[in-house]
């Protein structure tokens, strides 16, 4: 048997995985009866449904009638360049302050574009930081540490 529709096959596997996760850990909680449902009732029923659907999707992907469909390559570098600075922003904002964090976020993420240039990125960063200071700090008065804790407020 050949997996014709790779997309569907792996999607099915993913759903089975999630279903197993939710119904498996659901067994830790009280199940209850239909009239008095425990916290586990609804998630376990849903989790089992999800496993069932996942199996259907995966089997359908191996059917002779299934379309040939490959999973496109993951571009890990783009993922890392976009999500990495977001995580860093969350971790560092309270120590480094808004302005440096924004600079880091814009500089690193801009690198993900195939048209990256330092000059344009810096210009973009300046404009965006000014805009953010105006909109969020000045106009909306949200509370942010602006500069690193050891320099000042």
């Amino acid at each position: 048997m050949r997996i014709r529709n790779q997309q569907d096959f792996w999607a099915g596997v993913m759903f089975v995985g999630f279903g197993a996760f939710f119904s498996g850990f659901g067994t830790q909680y009280a199940f209850g009866t239909a009239a008095r449902m425990g916290p586990a009732y609804f998630p376990i029923v849903l989790g089992l449904t999800l496993i069932f659907l996942g199996i259907i999707i995966s089997i359908g992907a191996m059917a002779v009638t299934a379309r040939n469909e490959k999973v496109a390559r993951f571009s890990w570098s783009t993922l890392l360049l976009i999500l990495g600075p977001v995580v860093l922003f969350g971790l560092l904002i309270n120590t480094l302050g808004l302005i440096l964090c924004l600079l880091m976020l814009i500089a690193v993420s801009s690198y993900a574009s195939h048209e990256f240039t330092w000059k344009a990125t810096l210009a973009n960063a300046l404009v965006l930081i000014a805009l953010c200071l105006f909109v969020f700090v000045y106009a909306l008065k949200l509370q942010f540490p602006l500069w690193p804790a050891f320099i000042g407020p």
Binding site: I82, P85, V86, F89, G90, I93, L98, C101, L102, L105, I106, S109, S110, S113, E115, F116, A120, T121, N124, A125, L128, L131, C132, F136, L142, F144
Partner: peptide
């Protein structure tokens, strides 16, 4: 161009999440 656009999307998202 998109290269100027998407960093601003990220910036707004990050500030939003922090708020």
């Amino acid at each position: 161009p998109y290269r100027f656009l998407y960093p601003s999307i990220l910036v707004f998202c990050c500030i939003g999440v922090y708020t």
